[in-house]
Design a protein around this nucleic acid. Structure first.
Lengths: 413, 413
DNA sequence: GGCTTTTGTTCACGGCAAGAGCATAAGCTG
DNA sequence: CAGCTTATGCTCTTGCCGTGAACAAAAGCC
């Protein structure tokens, strides 16, 4: 994790507050205070002051550590009952899912809804749901993250070729175009990669490649825990390089894109079914389960492209998510047979591992959460929180007379 | 520039020393002390103490600012006459060049020598030259950087397919395998990109692509001023993805590599000349100057690949160095005609600029310098320098009775 | 019940940057 | 050329922060 350095003694404190909260968040609120103190190389006294301050700001709340231990019992810092909450949604081609998350990463699903693929039907009801939860959460809401299956231009204009979305203004259609609460729209592949880097198989990996196979194929480079975003936010498009051997025109406007050969659309096309509307998830899964030939063709194209990416970027590991997991399981032979000959000779001694995602289809949603916390767990983010929470009740949290809102509220499914 | 953050008050000082030296180095020792103070947001008092400390450690030396100015005259901090020096070499397929560089980036060429392409003839004499200068410089030498035209595995094993180098142990053949002075072997493309990011067209660019065309074609992603290195140091190989349309087998072991279609080897092959030994620089330049057809074919393949990389990574700018500069000048039409149709539709509104390198053929050498200073301009690097320079003469540098070694010494060409 | 072990708390200390006040050295003005 | 203006360097006080040692607390162990 890269954090901007402090340069004055005042920024030191702010910087260490961020480090401590980040450590709590990244470990899922499982580490004890004494562990964190050692890990961050703080003096015990410093840790005392920091934790006390963060508890006073309703950012942390300590609970006794479970289990027997030798010396004086230590505490486990975790989310405060009135602490920060992120909302996040994963908008897929045929449905969306909305969830909330508190510090430490505990997720509560708030709703799931199918839609017809039009921007209006996909985004309108979601915007209303988000607004409702935002009212309920009040200042506890630190931001809203949204994952989408297409390139996202500066500010939230989205294109999804195979759905016919052209420059769809996502913040406007959600009704969240104003700054409060802060809205972060991101590409599903990049966000899945982010989640994998924080809580999955890319944890601690310096250089990794993440490939997300849904209807389309997305791919992105992950460096030191962050997905490389591109200059205007529309990176994560490894699928639109000509790596698969196809020469077919792609709805993106180019030709020969790798994404034409891998994914649900490619599976459907391979068996002569209609495709391209994001409406065939069930059929695609049937093809995946029954058509050896279609699966082999997909896996071969996948392997060929992986070899090219490994040559170019020299990753430690390549992670597959979405249908990529099944392709790897069902046709490992074809995948490796296509990958091997495409590698440079020097890569063959220690080829990178090709692994399945640890988070499965949940990756994009979790990544949208993490992107909200990434913006919050900064000196600026915490300063803003303090400003919005003037003179906290200075509670000892056993004083539970103040009713606090639960994450799920009344609208949980 | 990303610098690790300070977490204790002691590290604060070290961190600010690094920031100040880095600022002096990056601007080429042209900024005045008052400018630096403002830029780094330091108090004037703090700057005083920092500069005094660095001058005492023989890291900085102030000279009066030239030109008329309104108030009290300010000073320009620059390299100290007994300050740190980096050595760097660029080993090309047919010759090498050795140079020295002090803080601020002033370069002194120390030697140029052709070689026959064998590891022994290329590396032996270079090692001797480096050792001689190392003796002369003594503790002023902070490191040696070497740029090479091939992938460099952990520790310095180098493969250059078209020269027949297989797992060549560069540090051993240079006779510099021991830790003193620290030796950094790097890929020429990655280092050229680094130089471009620090002193060329990629300055201040968040996401850029650098392509270096020599005999072979190298390419690398540049993020926030650093070239993405790969897990084992062998990234920077965009040339070994199948982006150019070829299906020919590549000496690297794969097939269809982009590097088969672009570069001096490709030019020579196109007109039916021998190629592959790195021995035809003059002929290649003649082909480049005379054969419209060969140039067009190269430029077309280059443009096609650039489009793919732009789709995948969404860079602000694509920089061409080496022969890429001439290809862009001589066949801009073919290049753009091949690039355009390969772009995703959403990239066509604001396609990235395609520009020529600002540093030309010097990029790799300069990048090797920068890589040495990157290791030096850290809290650890400066701490080590202080240890090796115990109790400096506390000089006011007008006391020039102590003869100090010049950069060029007696062996300058 | 007393001893050991580990952790939380408190406090004096030293290091650091900030910022105000003063000193300095130029340009500018008449 | 003398006095004024302007910008910068230097010094010293102030306040903040992390450190580490001493002490208190709370559990396990014998």
């Amino acid at each position: 994790m890269i954090v901007n350095g402090a340069t004055t003694s005042g920024e030191l404190r702010a910087h260490n507050r961020v480090r401590l909260l980040r450590a709590v968040h990244d470990c899922g609120a499982t580490r004890t205070r004494s562990q964190l103190t050692r890990e961050l190389k703080l003096a015990r006294g410093t840790a005392s002051v920091l934790v006390a301050g963060l508890a006073e700001d309703a950012l942390l709340h300590e609970e006794p550590a479970p289990g027997p231990a030798r010396g004086r019992p230590t505490q486990v810092p975790g989310p405060h009952p009135r602490g920060p909450v992120a909302l996040a949604a994963d908008i897929r081609e045929d449905a969306w899912e909305l969830a909330a998350c508190e510090l430490g990463g505990r997720v509560t699903v708030l709703g799931v809804r199918p839609h017809d693929g039009t921007p209006q039907d996909a985004l309108g009801p979601l915007g209303e749901a988000v607004a409702g939860h935002a009212r309920r959460l009040g200042p506890r809401l630190i931001g809203v993250g949204v994952a989408l299956a297409g390139p996202i231009r500066h500010g939230g204009l989205v294109d999804i070729g195979h759905l016919g979305w052209r420059s769809v203004d996502v913040p406007a259609l959600l009704g969240l175009a104003d700054a409060e609460p802060p809205l972060a729209v991101g590409n599903d592949t990049a966000l899945a990669a982010l989640a994998e880097a924080r809580r999955g198989r890319l944890r601690g990996v310096r250089v990794g490649v993440h490939l997300h196979v849904d209807f389309d194929l997305g791919g992105v480079l992950v460096l030191d825990g962050r997905a490389v975003p591109g200059a205007s936010g529309t990176g994560a498009e490894f699928g639109h390089m000509p790596l698969g051997g196809s020469t077919r025109r792609c709805p993106c406007g180019a030709a020969g894109c790798w994404a034409m050969d891998v994914g649900a659309n490619a599976l459907l096309r391979h068996v002569g079914l209609a495709y391209g509307g994001g409406r065939g998830r069930a059929q695609a899964e049937r093809v995946l389960a029954t058509s050896e030939e279609a699966v082999t063709a997909n896996a071969t194209a996948l392997g060929r492209g992986i070899a090219a990416l490994v040559n170019a970027h020299d990753p430690e590991v390549v992670i597959l998510s979405g249908h990529g997991v099944e392709l790897r399981e069902r046709a490992a032979g074809a995948l490796m047979a296509a990958c091997g000959p495409g590698l440079m000779a020097i890569r063959r001694d220690h080829p990178p591992r090709i692994e399945a995602s640890a988070l499965g289809w949940r990756g994009s949603l979790l990544g949208a959460m993490e992107s909200v916390f990434d913006a919050f767990l900064t000196t600026e983010g915490l300063e803003l929180w303090r400003k919005n929470h003037p003179d906290q009740a200075r509670d000892t949290p056993d004083r539970q007379s103040v009713m606090h809102s639960t994450l799920a509220g009344e609208s949980a499914p």
